[in-house]
């Protein structure tokens, strides 16, 4: 309890940490209340952005479309709101799965050591040998585009970070005498892992995962931008950015920023989202630093 209060005090001493937490909470509530904030036009497929017309020229903000529309008349506001859901979904699923795989492999490697460690780490190295983005694109090309396949491809090439992180962390924790004490007490291996090794080594991984909550959805968005992710019209920030790319500077001359809203709203959203998770990651790094708790 005393520790918890200390953590809270520490957290609220830095306005930056509060900003991070507020931003993340904001995006979480946007995702949760998306159906209220932007009632779906097609309730059977809420992720499809409503399209009002087919005109190729974006329309500026108006009472109907408060953030304006993209080329092809997709509502930017709707895309931003439901895109938050997409981003969080991608983040949670990809990072969740990658964590499970990574922690499992890293823990087994570190706990057993010897040839188990050697084998698992060489496998990890093989996956790491592929450049991340290239690897993901190749896998998507093989299994086909689509938001689900993008997530699989990301998981396949992302778990190694966690595996290595947790392995290093456990190897360090293993040196503590309390681990040997547990062996001396007859504690079974599984319990040593769950009671001693993981609780003392998981924090760097959690911090990393929080930072990755910022980057992974952006990678997915980038893939959507390249046309490898979500289908056309799917509420996704990458998609919005992709729609905007021809309108960042007015193509036909005149006021160069005539279509500012096409890029402004999606990019501000993306920046705030990434900022929120990064600040949260930093905050976690501060408060979860074991030296602070001990």
């Amino acid at each position: 309890m005393e520790g918890f209060v200390k953590v809270l005090r520490k957290m609220f001493r830095h306005p930056v940490s509060i900003a991070g937490i507020i931003l993340v909470l904001l995006f979480l509530s946007i995702a949760i209340f998306a159906p209220l904030l932007a009632p779906p036009a097609y309730p059977w497929n809420p992720y499809m952005m409503p399209q009002s017309g087919l005109s190729a020229v974006p329309q500026p903000p108006s009472p109907q479309h408060i953030f304006g529309t993209t080329q092809g008349q997709y509502d930017i506001y709707y895309g931003v709101i439901w895109g938050t859901r997409t981003a969080l979904e991608v983040g949670v699923v990809v990072i969740g799965l990658a964590l499970v795989i990574g922690i499992l492999i890293g823990t087994l490697a570190a706990y057993f050591g010897g040839w188990v460690d050697e084998l698992l780490m060489r496998i990890t190295d093989i996956f790491l040998a592929f450049p991340f983005f290239v690897g993901v694109i190749v896998v998507i090309t093989i299994i086909g585009p689509g938001i689900t396949n993008v997530m699989w491809a990301l998981v396949i090439f992302y778990w190694m970070t966690y595996a290595r992180l947790i392995r290093g962390s456990i190897l360090e924790v293993k040196e503590n005498q309390y681990v040997m004490a547990a062996v001396a007490l007859g504690t079974p291996g599984g319990r040593i892992i769950t009671r001693h090794l993981l609780p003392n080594s998981i924090y760097p991984v959690i911090i990393q995962a929080s930072m990755d909550m910022a980057t992974i959805p952006l990678t997915a968005a980038a893939l959507s931008f390249l046309g490898l992710g979500a289908p056309v019209g799917y509420a996704d920030w990458g998609q919005l950015a992709s729609f905007a790319r021809n309108w960042i500077i007015t193509p036909s001359g005149g006021n160069p920023f005539q279509y500012w809203y096409t890029i402004f709203f999606p990019s501000v959203t993306i920046v705030l989202y990434a900022l929120g998770w990064n600040l949260l990651g930093d905050t976690l790094r501060d408060i979860l630093d074991p030296r602070m708790l001990i």
Binding site: Q177, Y178, M180, A181, A184, L185, R195, N200, P290
Partner: peptide, 14 residues
Amino acid sequence: QMIFQDPYSSLDPR
């Protein structure tokens, strides 16, 4: 049974 040297690393801090 065993008693360890380092009173800091021999008890699990968590």
